[in-house]
């Protein structure tokens, strides 16, 4: 079971005119894996994610997400994935509970299911006492955790996290990664992009994108050996420098 692939990408390309934002990338992600998707700004990470989550059409290549084809079954993909962007987009003028109800509702969860799930979720996050507070009044770290929990509400098979820890302090980041581990333990696949190289060390496997191509893909340990360095930070810098 552990070897089952939930994402299979082959020569996936997105071209804007002559410019190839994503240039024939190929990789697989296994079920329950924490897959780090790294790259400098403008390397094509966001474009690649948009194709995988079904809001952008690839120019060529193949991609399957949770057994569904990105060309023909984007709707099925959307039902089976969760997504959290770098802005932890929740509605500031809605309360914690209303946000949960709304996002549960658009994924088609019944009122009863939402009620049960949100009760557990709020207790787990320690937010049950502030469930009727507006999200806008919460600190950033809390919004981030809530946003992640909301993305998991409909029990997606894969969660895509696009720079989920931007602007958050190290302690909250650490707590957030504990939440990620927990979700992965329960069998949810985590597909995460980040700028923080210490976070890259937490991933099972890491791919590094440079100028539209995947230049490296392995476990953090193997990558460090391959490049004969001691941290992911150095791996990243070496790769980026070689290309220049």
């Amino acid at each position: 079971m552990k070897n089952e692939n939930v994402i299979e990408v082959e020569n996936l390309t997105k071209a804007f005119g002559a410019f190839k934002a994503v240039n024939a990338i190929s990789f697989e992600v296994k079920k329950g894996e924490i897959f780090g998707f790294l790259g400098a700004n403008g390397a094509g990470k966001t474009t690649a994610i948009k194709m995988l989550i079904g809001i952008s059409h690839p120019s060529s290549g193949k991609a399957k997400v949770v057994d569904y084809d990105v060309y023909t079954q984007p709707e099925a993909i959307k039902r089976n994935i969760g997504y959290m962007s770098q802005r932890f987009a929740l509605y500031d003028d809605l309360t914690v509970q209303e946000n949960i109800n709304f996002f549960g509702g658009i994924y088609g969860l019944s009122r009863k299911v939402i009620r049960e799930k949100s009760k557990n979720l709020l207790v787990e996050l320690g937010m049950h006492e502030i469930s009727s507070k507006l999200v806008g009044s919460l600190p950033l770290g809390w919004k981030q955790k809530l946003s992640f929990s909301v993305a998991l509400l409909h029990e997606p098979k894969i969660v895509f996290l696009d720079e989920p820890t931007g602007g958050v302090d190290p302690i909250t980041r650490r707590q957030f990664w504990e939440m990620i581990y927990k979700a992965a333990d329960q069998g949810t696949t985590i597909f995460v992009t980040t700028h923080y190289m210490d976070e890259a060390e937490y991933c099972d496997r890491v791919s590094i994108m440079v100028e539209g191509k995947i230049e490296a893909l392995d476990t953090p340990k193997n990558l460090k050996q391959q490049f004969k360095v001691t941290s992911m930070n150095e791996v990243f810098l070496k790769l980026a420098r070689n290309i220049e």
Binding site: I53, G54, E75, R79, Y83, A89, L90, Y91, I106, Y107
Partner: peptide, 14 residues
Amino acid sequence: ELGTMEILLVSPLK
């Protein structure tokens, strides 16, 4: 602006 549109587009809502 808030980025919630992206979330809505990734949801099953058309």
